[in-house]
């Protein structure tokens, strides 16, 4: 099925409830080809032109779910939402970036999905369109399953507030070539609300927000002046974020697998370094 518009796609979904929508297919088709998934039908979203661009709406950008990573990584988009562009540029190899989409990254909800911490830090919302019309859901609610995708619904748009302030996305994959994130940190400044928002990806099934660390560091920043912090503050912020997002290896885990403790220590250290560097870059 290859609908040409969003309306057609929604009605096609309603007609065949077993159909699985596919955009870039970088996750889905791998599973289908390996025989892990046998969908009743595939609903190709490649021809739905209205999902492939973006528009402005009340100080926010309304991004089509079909935006590819390659498109988001381009400079015009980077001027708009820098962290999302940085995240999109680090997704996989170029072949994947050319077809993989923002919507697909959200719906497949892989723990190491690169755009997810950025969307969580930006407090983005998504528009889900179903037979009964559209509804707005916070990305974090969708990812945590607080408000899941219902049968027959399609993810159509992502609403991202435009903050006009520095944003940083940092990812550590442990090597120079493309890789899955071991940990990633997205950090955005919101000067209007005098807030710092930070999300850590890949360390848990969903991106984590260290809310206390955010509040603490926002209080340390001189918002009206130079907007800089002491290196000691950045260091402490990194450790604060790391201890909030990477739990101690439990006694049971330590007993079951002896290498759990060093793994946790290493992950903490990575998150701490990433958060420190992210804050440093956002405030430089």
């Amino acid at each position: 099925m290859l609908p040409a518009s969003l309306d057609e796609a929604v009605s096609a979904m309603a007609e065949s409830p077993g159909a699985v929508p596919v955009a870039g297919g970088t996750d889905l088709m791998g599973a289908v080809n390996a025989g892990l998934l046998r969908p009743m039908a595939l609903l190709g979203l490649g021809r739905v032109a209205e999902l492939r661009g973006w528009q402005y709406q009340d100080g926010a950008a309304l991004l089509g779910a079909g935006l590819t990573h390659a498109r988001m990584a381009r400079p015009d988009f980077a001027a708009l939402i820098p962290a999302l562009a940085e995240a999109a540029a680090t997704v996989g190899p170029p072949q994947v970036r050319n077809v993989g989409t923002l919507g697909g990254n959200i719906v497949s909800a892989h723990p190491a999905g690169d755009t997810l911490p950025v969307l969580a830090a930006l407090e983005a919302t998504v528009t889900l369109v179903g037979p009964e019309g559209g509804r707005e859901v916070a990305v974090s609610h969708l990812l945590t399953g607080l408000d899941p995708l219902r049968s027959g619904e399609l993810l159509a748009y992502v609403r991202v507030p435009l903050l006009h302030a520095p944003q940083v996305f940092l990812k550590s994959g442990g090597r120079t070539g493309p890789s899955r994130a071991v940990a990633s940190v997205a950090l955005v400044l919101d000067p209007a609300r005098r807030a710092v928002r930070c999300a850590v990806g890949a360390v848990a099934p969903v991106p984590l927000r260290p809310l206390e660390a955010e509040q603490w560091v926002a209080g340390c920043i001189d918002w009206d002046g130079e907007r800089t912090v002491d290196p000691g503050v950045a260091q402490a912020f990194g450790e604060y974020v790391a201890s909030a997002c990477v739990p101690d290896a439990g006694a049971e885990a330590a007993a079951a697998r002896t290498d759990a403790a060093p793994t946790t220590a290493r992950l903490r250290r990575t998150v701490s370094v990433l958060a420190r560097r992210a804050l440093g870059r956002a405030l430089s």
Binding site: E86, A89, T90, K171, T176, S179, L274
Partner: peptide
């Protein structure tokens, strides 16, 4: 850099 282009 060691974390690759656009890395940390």
């Amino acid at each position: 850099l060691p974390e690759g282009p656009g890395g940390a």
